[in-house]
Design a protein around this nucleic acid. Sequence first.
DNA 1: CTGAAAGCGCTTACAG
DNA 2: CTGAAAGCGCTTACAG
Lengths: 359, 359
Amino acid sequence: MDPVRVRSKKRITSFDIAELAGVSQATVSRALRGDPSVSGETRRRVEAAATALNYTVDKSASNLRGRLTGTLALLFFEDPTPDDSRINPFFLSMLGSITRACARHGYDLLISFQELARDWHADFAESKKADGIILLGYGDYLTHTSRLEKLRARGTKLVCWGAVLPEQPCVTIGCDNFSGGRSVTEHLLDQGCRRIAFLGDASQHFPEFQERYRGHIQALRTRGLPVDEALQVDAESSQHSGRRATEALLARGVAFDAIFAASDLIAIGAIGALSEQGIDVPFEVAVAGYDDIPMASFVTPALTTVQQDTQRAGEVLVDSLVRLIHNEPVASKMLPMKLIVRRSSLWQEIVHAECARED
Amino acid sequence: MDPVRVRSKKRITSFDIAELAGVSQATVSRALRGDPSVSGETRRRVEAAATALNYTVDKSASNLRGRLTGTLALLFFEDPTPDDSRINPFFLSMLGSITRACARHGYDLLISFQELARDWHADFAESKKADGIILLGYGDYLTHTSRLEKLRARGTKLVCWGAVLPEQPCVTIGCDNFSGGRSVTEHLLDQGCRRIAFLGDASQHFPEFQERYRGHIQALRTRGLPVDEALQVDAESSQHSGRRATEALLARGVAFDAIFAASDLIAIGAIGALSEQGIDVPFEVAVAGYDDIPMASFVTPALTTVQQDTQRAGEVLVDSLVRLIHNEPVASKMLPMKLIVRRSSLWQEIVHAECARED
DNA sequence: CTGAAAGCGCTTACAG
DNA sequence: CTGAAAGCGCTTACAG
């Protein structure tokens, strides 16, 4: 609005502060960084001068010299969706908690959407925008593995959100997907369900879904129940895909009395598809999801699901990365999950209730 | 993991590329920045060399010299909430769309949570972390105004999300809150409602809510209906606050047949409080919200609300800021809103339907 | 505890 | 179209 004024005001540097405080520029730098060798008296004078001139350290210069940026990068992977307007609510929630955790640690967060297809591996640490990288997203981790190894070879500090498995190429934080999958299926079996469909891509390309599926299978086996492959349908984490998968399942003509969806979005899509066919949830088919996104408690019927503690997850991700940056040892970590039972899966109890009274 | 290898590998600089390509370092810089004075032949040699050595420009150095960072900062204001785990879904959605818009413009996004209390004005542009700033959040804009003016005086590039009003201290992008408020109330009146409570802080501290309230009042006046101040209850944008406000409204003992909540979260809290008192929505009290957060279509009954196009908003915010950075003229802009009618407000029609048939 | 000096890796007038 | 040179604003050995 006032380019002249702006242009005429030259930037205030550490030299200006040095002059005002009557010390050398080097001392200004030390004082402001909290170097313990600076005397209290000098530090106070420098700080007063900095405040008086409204001075802030130039990050670019400080980074250039100091090698660190005070910034963490979040590479956010999401395949372009048909309705590419909305981010998957689970990741949005993670994003929020990561942002807050960064603030607590005194880091800024540089966010970058990445389409899975793109060549992202060179972008960040190498161009020194960030001290470390957090990778977040479902998606095909096999494609990533080679890139992760390249990054690791370069000494890039890196943590991943995902399935915690042996021989991971980088520090990985994730929830206990196996136990989560088992818990859901045990719960459905306890409800009296016997033919549980699983909606979700259970291949090694989606290790989180795969772990959930493995937990599901294990629960069946433990109870001595057969595994029917016709009950598994691939799906990605979206309502649209959940709807499609449910239609495919119905088209197969196999009998089922429950759906375990690998994510809440899939489950919500499934409920929609079932309703359209006049199939009542949970009376005819019990449904459970995974993630406990905010929507899960609001859909009708409210969705049984597995809660992943996104707050905790964000904190652990940031904490781990900061420790990596400080060259402290960091191990992958599996966070506990929590089964949240809501109306969508109360098959048996509903049957019970229907006999006893009219709701 | 392998500190020796990492340490021994010195950073590849533009001098290395220059040597390999057989040109000067200055030419490398020009070629890589797309300077048109560089010949095609030279450019290709430089690019080949850069690719061969896996070189990327050092952002810190480039920023120090070049004055621009290629980064936009998003200052995200949210007062610490009781359940400070979750970000307001409306802003989360904005955050997603801003992130994507930045990516499209080739900018990175630096996100920083700000508690309203903190002294944020010096942080960003001045320390050269970002070329411009986006301010996002509800909250008390009066407190901001003086800070905004300080920033503007320094020549900081700045856009705000908020109420678009005359004499704004900075370029502001927002939805048409006045028309939104008017539309909701007109709709409720069309349903036959006559005593419409407004839940939301309608003071000048929250200009967006205030505009919605003004639209509400205007709709009443146009129809020649009286304004009863006992029907307005302050509330902040949270379920908790909506619940409280509804309880306060009920405690006042004034009659009302509709609630217009200044945000969806307030509305959802209100529906909860009404249900607890055995008051049926929409049969006894029609309810409408504002924002069209994803939850709005999933609550029971589905919530009538005003949609703010967050995709568009994110694009316009980023676009405006980028133009400010390029010293192009930019005006504040009011985006259109859209009334979304769902079940929660279908007071009259429900009464109708009840007579005709059993649903 | 403090200062003088080098240098981080670029960009951009200035010459030619 | 290209090169030699200055300098962006810091941090950090090296001396004292």
